[in-house]
Design a protein around this nucleic acid. Structure first.
Lengths: 254, 254
DNA sequence: TGACGTGGTTTCATTCTGTGATAAAAACTA
DNA sequence: TAGTTTTTATCACAGAATGAAACCACGTCA
């Protein structure tokens, strides 16, 4: 993860920078040293330290010999989001239904910046022990992420491909820009995307975008299963269900 | 929730204030209007708005006609915490074990400021549909929270009782300071606490503190079940298991 | 042993950010 | 319509946030 763009001419520099620091910690599962954080965030060490000290005193960062990590207090925010988001409230029964109808693990996900996060997940009948847990930062350029990428503004898409130039798929293949564009176009035409082993090995998924009244993509819904259980044979059949679920949520959102 | 203490003479005022705003949103499941947030956080409206604008542009706050809510990007932090915390890593198998041995729902929780959050939870054999979900902000003065309160510094305890003066228990009873002190002393003497319907109606719990090498309380572990399934008869028996689990985690933490 | 590199902490003068009073513009009420 | 509340916009000033520099604590290597 390269340094976040320090260009932002915000009117609250220190807060922007604190969020830069948080984003660095958010996307690391290992403790990071002060110097490493300042490097990744593109900030002066002194600045980084001041920010970390405040965040730590508020429980949003933890700290030991090994370095700095995300803090316990961050759980509160996630809980509040899941409890208060209308998207989540409307989608929950639909995701549930999709899982039980198809038997696959069903998930709702949404975009945040140039990444996405799984927001809701319901296990299917054959539980997958490959975990795709709530809150993980996932790319937009692989697998189900593409249904979100397909509705980015052109300039956002450009920023995305620049920043993600080196995200090989799970099988090690590297997709060209042309391939990506083709997939995104397919999403817009067919209203769904069928991915095999793009983001995780042995796993396939069928995903559909959720569009609001203005045609903006506000989230995506997907089912996922082991590749051997998710053959092309059922593609059509399952895709219909996924798209139907997406439509129901979209309609509920008004 | 009263206005957070604005006294803090930090060296990063704007960041402190941004966190004040986040805490207001963290502890509300409903959307809040700008003016309401500024009131609760004890900040000027203009200041509050500037902060919210930045947070929203970074996905940490969402916004519609109904007001401001926690944002999707907050999920990333929670995920990072759960993945990177050594406490969580060490405790996970122990919590699992405790749930399967006792048959009750087992949880790990930790303190953040003057509240606590559930960090980990494993359902028992008779799944409880009263949810005590990860990340909810729970009081220290009721139920299992007391095992954390029992090890607060004296001045912290004072601040706690001041701020929580009006937290009646689930059954509507209001505990006196003397009762609280008695319970906290009991925790320190017996090494566990048996709570019946303090925080939630129909529910009881047995909790134990997890103390590190220096005798500081770093977390708590508990089992919870319906009152009719958690009689005094089994208290001793189950308490032994809970304490054992706490000891194992403490030892792993070194 | 001493020179060097790396990572962390502290200090302090300068500057530009963050602040909040004020006011205007919306959004509601009645 | 006028009255009330909430939100947005403006701007001059204070002081908060900044980053250079110096300092400390480690290692490692010659």
């Amino acid at each position: 993860m390269p340094a976040t763009d320090a260009s932002s001419a915000s009117n609250m520099r220190s807060l922007e920078r604190a969020i830069d620091v948080l984003e660095v910690l958010d996307s690391s599962t290992q403790p990071l040293r002060l110097s490493e954080i300042s490097r990744r965030a593109g900030l002066h060490v002194a600045t980084t330290k001041r920010i970390l000290t405040v965040l730590e005193s508020r429980g949003r960062v933890e700290h030991d010999e090994a370095g700095f990590r995300a803090g316990l207090a961050l759980l509160f925010g996630a809980h509040a989001y899941l409890e208060s988001s209308p998207l989540v409230a409307h989608a929950r029964p639909v995701v549930q239904e999709l899982a039980s109808v198809t038997g696959y693990t069903a998930s709702l996900f949404a975009r945040s910046g140039l990444a996405r996060a799984v927001v809701l997940r319901v296990e299917g009948t054959s539980p997958m022990r490959y975990v795709l847990p709530t809150g993980e930062r996932l790319p937009l350029t692989l697998g189900a992420g593409k249904v979100l990428a397909a509705y980015l503004e052109p300039d956002e898409l450009e920023r995305l491909v620049e920043s993600e130039q080196d995200h090989p798929s799970a099988t090690g293949e590297r997709q060209t820009r042309a391939e990506l564009d083709r997939d995104l176009a397919a999403v817009r035409e067919q209203g769904y995307y069928f991915a095999l082993q793009e983001r995780a090995i042995g796993v396939g998924s069928i995903a559909a975008p959720i569009l609001n009244a203005e045609g903006r993509c506000v989230a995506g819904i997907q089912i996922a299963g082991r590749v051997q259980e998710l053959t092309e044979l059922r593609e059509q059949e399952v895709a219909v269900e996924v798209r139907r679920a997406a439509a129901v949520i979209a309609q509920k959102l008004g």
